[in-house]
Amino acid sequence: MTQHGHTWYGNDAALVQEYTAWMRLEGNADSTIHNYRNQIIRLDRWLQEQQGEQRLGLMDVDGPTFVTWRASLTIADVTITTYVAYLRSFYSWAVKAGHLAENPALGVPLPRLPRRLPRPIADDRLEHAIDCAPPRIRPWLVLAGYVGLRCCEISVLRRRDVYDTSPQPFIHITGKGQHERQVALSDYVLAELEETLRTRRLWLFPRLDGSNGHVSRNRVSYLGNQHLHRCGVVETMHQLRHRFATAVYAVDRDLRLTQELLGHQDPSTTARYTAIGDTAASAAVAAIQPGRRLRAVRRRRKSS
């Protein structure tokens, strides 16, 4: 059976469709579902290449077959770990749904990943990139570097998500897994976003190809990274987020607050009941903003 350009074996197409429907009910984003489904397709194609027309179905795969598949991978260790995690999730669902007795992916050995330190972009390089940026890309750099947003979060921002008229302005963010958080907005960020906020009614960053909807996260990542590299900056958009995390943590070494502002999924129980827009969070975000740049923005506004 062919589905979305891929020929499935036996009942596998129905199983994958059932799995993706379950992921949607759990609130996973379309991009997340797409990534998981693509990895299932990669495994299915490998089964076909290894076994031809007599290949195993997805529910027939056992532990030794998984180990053989894992040994065939010639990709980076971190990518192997990601691929195995996707398939473990799929087979964990299959067990819960009654399609399998046990998860065949649990025993697959994983490479040991080295501990990676944060790689924040230096402030002077970030400021240079912002100064060189075209109007469409400039706010993306500001939101990543000074608010800590992921590209996928920038792409789906709506005008209503920015509470710029509140006594303590903040932005409401729906992140990975539909987890919500709020991050205080400094005067600098508000000044940089002023034109965008004034001219947008629905999406802050709509598509420019004539279609409805927001710019894709891949487009934000691609164009943002392309701009950074064109102006001589080797870092990526995600390293702008590293810069935000490092700077916030340096203010008062509050790891819990940093986790909340970044939208990580494992804050403490107490943190889940703490208002993000409180004085401490606002002060932490405000403390890392470039006052010199804010004054320059205000001077530009007065002269225009």
Score class of each variant (00 low, 15 high):
V183E: 03
V183S: 04
A184Q: 00
A184C: 14
A184H: 00
A184D: 03
A184N: 04
A184W: 00
L185G: 03
L185D: 01
L185M: 12
S186G: 11
S186T: 10
D187Y: 03
D187E: 13
D187S: 15
D187H: 13
Y188Q: 01
Y188M: 07
Y188R: 00
V189S: 02
V189A: 05
V189I: 04
L190C: 05
E192Q: 14
E192W: 02
L193W: 07
L193A: 02
L193I: 08
E194Q: 13
E194H: 14
E194M: 08
E195V: 12
E195M: 12
E195C: 10
E195R: 13
T196N: 08
T196V: 15
T196G: 02
L197E: 02
L197P: 04
L197W: 01
L197Q: 01
L197H: 04
L197A: 06
R198Q: 14
R198I: 09
T199S: 14
T199L: 13
T199I: 14
R200M: 13
R200A: 15
R201K: 12
R201T: 13
W203S: 05
L204F: 06
L204G: 07
F205A: 10
F205D: 05
P206A: 08
P206W: 07
R207T: 07
R207K: 14
R207H: 06
R207P: 08
L208Q: 14
L208W: 05
D209N: 15
G210N: 02
G210Q: 03
S211F: 13
S211K: 14
N212K: 14
N212Q: 15
G213R: 03
G213H: 06
H214D: 05
H214M: 08
V215M: 11
S216P: 00
S216G: 11
S216N: 00
R217G: 14
N218V: 05
R219F: 11
R219E: 13
R219S: 15
R219K: 11
V220G: 04
V220C: 05
V220S: 06
V220K: 00
S221P: 06
S221Q: 10
S221K: 02
Y222D: 15
Y222W: 12
Y222E: 15
L223D: 11
L223Y: 14
L223H: 13
L223S: 12
G224N: 10
G224P: 04
N225A: 09
N225W: 01
N225K: 10
Q226S: 15
Q226R: 15
Q226V: 04
H227P: 01
H227W: 01
H227I: 07
H227D: 08
L228N: 02
H229D: 06
R230Y: 02
R230M: 12
R230V: 04
R230W: 04
R230C: 07
R230E: 14
R230G: 12
G232E: 07
G232A: 05
V234I: 14
V234C: 09
V234Q: 13
E235T: 11
E235L: 10
E235I: 01
T236Q: 08
T236A: 09
T236I: 06
M237H: 06
M237G: 01
M237W: 07
H238L: 10
Q239F: 01
Q239E: 14
Q239Y: 08
L240F: 08
L240E: 02
H242Y: 02
H242A: 06
H242V: 01
H242C: 05
R243E: 07
R243N: 06
R243P: 01
R243D: 02
